[in-house]
Structure formats: structure tokens, C-alpha cells
Write a protein that binds this DNA or RNA. Sequence first.
RNA 1: GGCGCUAUCGUCUAGGGGUCAGGACGGAAGAUUCUCAAUCUUCAAACCCGGGUUCGAUUCCCGGUAGCGCUACCA
Length: 493
Amino acid sequence: MQEKSVTSTLVPRVRFAPSPTGFLHVGSARTFIFNWLYARHNGGTMILRLDDTDVERNTQQSVDSIFEGLKWLNLGWDEEYKQSERLELHRKVAWAIFEKDLAYRDFTPAHTGDGEKSGAQGTWLFNAEARERSAAESERRAAAGEPFALRFRVPRDAGQIVRFTDAVYGEQAKATADIEDFALLRSDGMPTYHLASCADDADLQISHIIRGQDHLTNTFKHVLIFEAAGVTPPQFAHLPLLVAPDGTKLSKRRHGPVVSVTTYRDAGFLAEAFINFLCLLGWSPKDDRTNMAVKELREIFSLEGINRSNAVVNFKEPAATTEERFDPKAVWLNAEHIRGLSVEDLSGRLLPIVLGAGFDVTPEKMLQITPLIRERIKLLSEVLSAADFFFVDQLPPYDAAELIPQKGDAAMASRVLEKAQVVLAGVEFKHDPLDHALRAAAQELGVKAGQMFQPIRVAVCGRKNAPPLFETLEVLGKEMTLARVQRAIGYLN
RNA sequence: GGCGCUAUCGUCUAGGGGUCAGGACGGAAGAUUCUCAAUCUUCAAACCCGGGUUCGAUUCCCGGUAGCGCUACCA
């Protein structure tokens, strides 16, 4: 009936349409990203539409969370709408459907209990009394001020089938006998999601609806609405759902903040890495690539690469701490992206985090520190634990036993540090001179290089695991180094 | 209950009538190294079950099972 794929020859217009009833979670973020990628890949338009027709459940906090998350993703969009500002359009469409006798008034009070939600009893299709009511009586009761919902009159002729082709799930068909007479307008006059969504998609000339698979079966209703409104339905592409390790859908209440986008931002993820990670969930480039920049993703993204089965976001339950609670692949990818950043770029991102934690560091010093930790942090926030000793004048107390080298004793530690004190006082604080001087000192003392280095490392860093010694000393400077060595000698006595 | 969707290593996935079923993360072992990290090498690890079609099914078909979704005047 409709010419097929008319839209594919046009410039695509896609939309991300979150309803502000909760924070922006990773599943929504992926839907946004896939829409954006599709739009950009095809030179199309990306639209952000707030589907806020459920006044009861909408919150400003949720709106803020959505914008905060999207802003961090830094992908942007071209047009922006709010459904609550388009109510007239929705009603117009609903009543136009009513005029065609494809909808009717239902005066039955709304179901309040949610007993039928679980559906232990058979499927509710329609209320025959309401559906068959005469136009005259319908008009009379409406005129008398009796509240009613407007319901779609789903065709009941035997054997009628609603069809559409999904770009991901293929040919879809459902008998109208299995579709209930869903509501278009609530008794308070507000449009339902189905109506508002379709009315807006038609009005905004959306060419491709890319959304979660939870809408796959709703799409039959939507096709019915589009056709009743005299519009060719857009093309559909449903995305497999993102689920928690326990297989259930992502929920903040159940799974904690790991499912919220801003948690990733605050934990020190790079937006690009986060996007990269999300793209690998439910979509594949079909080759062995994993580490991809947004630019690359946008070049190769296509609907054909989307899978059909749900993907697990492999996070740990709320109890786990920072790095531990995220999907290990997301963390690894983030480390990969961090390593791919230039020192200048990385340093610029690290600086505000360090400053924000109350440390005093100059951009110049941060620039010196950055190469020493670039390969040692997986999350930006780890700069605080990886480079802490650079940011303070005096080291917090540490265990003096750490000063004792492998296969050595406290006496050896003392000898090493005392020797170091002398040697370091007379050497230029550059990598090579430090290297030569300290190795020579080790030889003089008759200890291994490692036995020489460890006490010094612990003396200046306060722990064993730290960046390479000479680079560290170079950044720390002679004065600071000698003071810390002096202090360590004190700990040993 | 009804309707729909899905099913490859622990996780994300590639593949497809005949493959040593490939890659990545994570895990294990080793190399390198001043510690840690990074890097490199190696190893362990999967086709849900049952029928059918076929010379041959993990792949195609049917059934089962399981998971998920929808079944609201939520979205």
C-alpha cells in the first residue's frame, strides 16, 4: 500500500525521546548514541524530544539528569522539543482519528489497581459496551460533562494482520485480535504515550525510529495510529535491551548508581571511552576492532551491525568500590583511551580533578606528572591515588617496614638511604645523572640496584608501587627528595 | 494466562551446512623491568535440549526449555 522505503532516499531525521521519570541510565544513553551515530553517518538530523506527558511522574530532577548526562556525552543535537508544549497537536490528531470513527469514547472509570498488570487472567481487548455505544449517546454523555478516555477502535475483522518491517528484527506481524483497544487520550484530556509519540513523530517528520526493544510490540499500535492519521509510518529499528548481570532490566533502585550515566562521568570515565563501550553492547563492527573513537564509530556505524539479543552490562553489585563496580571492559577501554590522549590533553583533564580534591598544583607541574601516571591509571579520578605524593609537601605516615628492601634488613635500608642522601645532594636531578649516580652507589654498597631503589622509592612516595624512580625524583626536585629521605632515615631509627 | 522477541566461552561478540568455532575483556602462566603499570608470548574457556532435512548440522526447519518484552487512562 505505501511505497516502501521512501524515507531511505531522504535525509534521515531521528529522535531520542526520553521521558523524564528517572535519571538518564546507560540504556537510554546507548539509544541516544545509536540515534546520533545514525543521523551523523547519514548526514541527517538529530532531535531531542522530552516525552513528558505523564505529569504525575515527571520530575525536574530527571530533566536535569538527562541534560547533564547528554551534555557530558558531548555529541549534541540539532532540534529540541517538549511534548508538553505540543498538546494541541496531539489532541488534534486524536480527534481527527475519532472523526474517522477509528476511535471512541470510553466512560469506564480508569483501572486503579494494578492487579491486571501481571495479567494472571486473560487478555483484555475492549469493553464492548463502550465500543458499540451509539454516537448520539456518546455525544450526550460527553456534553453532560462525564469524563471519558478516547480509545482506538482496533479493527476486529477476522484474520486482520498488522505488519511492519523492523531494520533489526525483520518482518513483524501481529493479528489485530491480539491488540487491545488502547487509549489515545486520558480522561483528563492528556494524550497517552502512544498517541503523543506518533503524533509528534509524524509532525516532526521522523524518518527512522531507533529505540529500545521494549517497544517492539507497541509498534503494532503505532502503525495503527499512523495509518489512522493518514501518515506513512517511519522505518523502525529496535535495539536489544541492556540488562543487569542478573538478567533483569537496569534499575537504580535494584542496582544502584552504576546504571546512571553521571556516575561514569564522576568516576573518571572519558566520554569517548564510555560511548565506545556502549556501542559494543548490542552492535558490532563485524571485524576485530574494539577501541574506536567517536569519529571512527560515526564512519562505520550501520543498522545492519545491530544484534537481536539482550546484552549484559557486567557491573558488580552496589557493594563494590569505584573501579571494581564497573564492567571490566568499560574500565579497560577507558584506560586505552586515556593512553591514547596526548600528555597535554590528559593533563588538562586531570588538573581540575586534583584541584577539586583540594590539592595545590600548577598546570606546569601537572604537565610533568602526567606522563608518569598515564599508563598507570584506568580512571581519571585515580590520579589522586596514583600521584598523591606529588601534591603534598609532607607525606602522610607510612609503614617503615616498607623501606626494607627485598632480601635485606633495616640496616641495609639505613645504609642505602644514608648513601643516597650523600649521592643525591651532589647530582643533577635529571634522569640519566640520577640513574648513573644511584647505580654506582649501589655497586659501592654491594647491593643490587633494586635494593638500592626501593628504600628511596618508599621514602619519596610513601609506598612500594609507584612510577619509575628517576623520573619521579626529577619531578619532585632535589630539596623535596632530600627532605623525605631524611625523614625516612628517622623512621628507621 | 495471551501475544511477541531471543538463545555461540564467565561477559561483549565474529562466523556459518564440512572451520583447529575467530577476536576482545576478565582469569592463569611466562617474558621484560628499579617496584607498579604498560607491552609481548602462551594457556584454560562456548555453539541450551530433542526431533527433522541432509552424505554431513552449531548453522536450515519444527518442537521443547529458559530468559526477556508487551499485555495501564506509564513510558
